[in-house]
Design a protein around this nucleic acid. Sequence first.
RNA 1: GCCCAGAUGGUGAAAUUGGUAGACACGCUAGACUUAGGAUCUAGUGCCUUUGGCGUGGAGGUUCAAGUCCUCUUCUGGGCACCA
Length: 894
Amino acid sequence: MAYSTNEIEQKWQKFWSENHTFKAENNSEKPKYYVLDMFPYPSGAGLHVGHPLGYIASDIYTRYKRHCGFNVLHPMGYDAFGLPAEQYAIETGTHPAVTTDKNIQTYRKQLDIMGLSFDWSREVKTCDPSYYKWTQWAFIEMFNSYYDSEKNCARPIEELKAKNPELTERDLDDYRIAYLADTPVNWCPALGTVLANDEVKDGLSVRGGHPVEQKTMKQWNLRVSAYAKRLLDGLENIDWSDSLKEMQRHWIGKSVGAEVKFKVKDKNVEFDIFTTRPDTIFGVTFMVLAPESYLVDEVTTDSQKADVETYLEATKKKGLREREADQKNVSGVFTGSYAINPFNNKEIPIWIGDYVLGGYGTGAIMAVPAHDSRDYAFAKHFDLAIIPVIDGGDIEQGSYDAKEGKMINSDFLNGLEVKEAIEKTNSEVETRGLGKKKTQYRLRDAIFSRQRYWGEPFPVYFKDGEPQMLAQDELPLELPEVDAFLPTEDGDPPLGRAKNWKTSGGDPLELSTMPGFAGSSAYFLRYMDPNNNQALVDKSVNAYWKNVDLYLGGSEHATGHLIYARFWNMFLFDRGYICEEEPFQKLINQGMIQGRSNFVYRLKSDLNTFVSHGLKDQYDVQEFHVDVNIVSNDQLDMEAFKAWRPDFKDAKFITEQEGGQDVYKCGWAIEKMSKSKYNVVNPDDMVEKYGADTFRLYEMFLGPIEQSKPWNTNGIEGVSRFLNKFWNTASGELEESVPTKEELKILHTCIKKVSEDMENFSFNTSVAAFMIAMNDLSKIKSKNKSVFETLTVLLSPFAPHIAEELWTLFGHQAGISTVQWPSHNEEYLIESSMDYPVSFNGKMRFTLNLPLDWNKDQLEKAALEAEQSQKYLDGKNIKKVIVVPKKIINIVVG
RNA sequence: GCCCAGAUGGUGAAAUUGGUAGACACGCUAGACUUAGGAUCUAGUGCCUUUGGCGUGGAGGUUCAAGUCCUCUUCUGGGCACCA
């Protein structure tokens, strides 16, 4: 019987949908298990072949868990607010909601044809008012809460007010979890919007090439920093990869040190610095302020004013990204003032340097060039003093950064080890009242305002300039209609265009919207109880599902979404709305399927002219991604390029010669597949051509789930052949007899391997195990029905359609997903024959491979037999027998 | 500059975690069946100067034994907030 993929797959997808096969119940006798995929942003390009990698893997695991008797929650939804839809709206006038809806439909269709077993009754969309009602609700809760550092949790702001009646509304802003504050941003006047560092290149906006400036604006912030310690400590108790935890630890950035006060000579000014190396206090030879420090104005002397201003101007132009990347060029300027070292009263020059960042610590450091490489470079460049205070380095060669050695040149610290010196200095600092021990985190508060249209409106209005929260029964505050998706003439965000954007009482509403991560920070909770009108999630429902058992997604979210979601979840936990502090118990990062991107090069001087790859070095150009679908063999279809985007319709090209023709050659690179890189390949064609089961199996067979690799379809024929073979045999005439020992060995080897792989997420080797089993069975011409029945159950998470079809062909009732997962029997796997010696390296020793369960005596007896046979020993004698644990004997011959 | 990950045949990759390197596939070669083959089956396939030798990016080291552990190094991918 021929295997018609389309017919079978459609039949079973319809069956699952009509029977609500994968609907999870909120209460069940069964144990619960929650498998979650990071929900996608529905981009216009549709799903690419990288998305399914994770979805298929999680679906396989989900189906496996169902076979194991769990009540599995496996939902899907859409992270539907976002910039691309808004950008598209600006370009075309199409409302982002329309674009988003259309994209979601495409996504849904693509997801459906892959046979993924989602419970679609729980679908959420972050742009849906009934969903973002709860995003707004959480924001209000955050505004009405503060972080109680004694109890180490968030509490209602009312409690703080009651305890400290003297606090004004203004003062409370310093405590609220959500608060309004002056925040520096990248402002692009031409676009009338704030840009991410990512959207700025060489001081110009990536989109349009307009100048960008640093500007301070009132923005909503979330006090994520209050949770730094808990976000760090919480990592101990969750099952994430070490590398991912490491990334988060690094991001949170705990450092233990001391805050020390320095006075400025001849000025009534003093300032704090934070250092992790208080032991080196006698090695301080200068101080460095961040260019954006408020102290700069206060300490700069009249004679140095001009130099300082020149330097500040230059720094401003550099931009943050550039400052980070450019580390070879040391730059700085002297302020003219001196600080006093509180321990020896020495005068130390105060400099300004852009290697010190305003946003971290106090924005000022004490520089110890002898023991810090960046300070050393600075000192060498400006010819400042270098005093070694730890024995062991050579200040002519470079700084000695290691935290070990004996103290020298350090007064009361002399002779101590570094560790002791740190302790001693810390206690001296405190007894002398010069400062205090301090643990510093570099995790910063999250800026929560966006001057955009397509996001959640803030549930905020202003009365006499003071922010007020809407009442809960006024939620959701729905996104208003606007006549254009651009900022207003006055530079207000797009919501400034909305008519009647005010409360019923006539007070103006907030014009900013929330950022992308707002909607994705609690969606995993909403899936538990998606239609609840009274709460984000009902407490008893939350008590059943608790948190996500397995979360699957890309590691690019390591420090963004995964920090914010943990923060958001911890906050809701503190306020008693949910029962688990950590949202994601186990996390697996799927690797990125990389694409092959193409680039064009635009003249900076003429934004309509593009230079071919071979000539680009002769011009000053900016690099852009171009759609790989209008490039072939790295050669650009120039007409298609003009039609590709409206702003390129008059594009001109500087071409190069190839094969006697003028062509435009594109640059290329292997990188992440994403819409913004225009290198997307869709899965639809694959499914269309080979069927969903083959596509699923192939994506798993490609390699380990965590590994990144460029997409290619070279091996898909192999899995396709395997499925055909399996189908042909299993759907043919089978024998209803007791399986032979040989058949059982093949079957149980496969059960064991696949079951182990399930727990290790090693699906590529499972696919291999199926192929081996199939090959072995076909070698012995096995057509045993019970063997194929069991294999079909094993295969059903991977290739569910074909498995369901076979299951009914075998005469069972439809619904293989509830069949008990088979367990293997070790008895069938033990080797009965002794097979030795198996190898001999010809010189000094040989190795015997022997059964696992042999004891030492048996092993030695085998060695002796080998010796007596002399067959493999080439006339040499056994010198030593070494019994290595488990299964190997080494016999050294000489 | 810093952090994380990685490097194994022509290709994607396995390797019980220190124990026969290259499972399983793709591709390729030969053959069978066939009007045909982009269907199916069978056999072969790491490399070389092939009675043998060499092989897991490179150089050392530990070990009876190293893809696996240690030191140094080169390259590739990803991330970054110079974190004092």
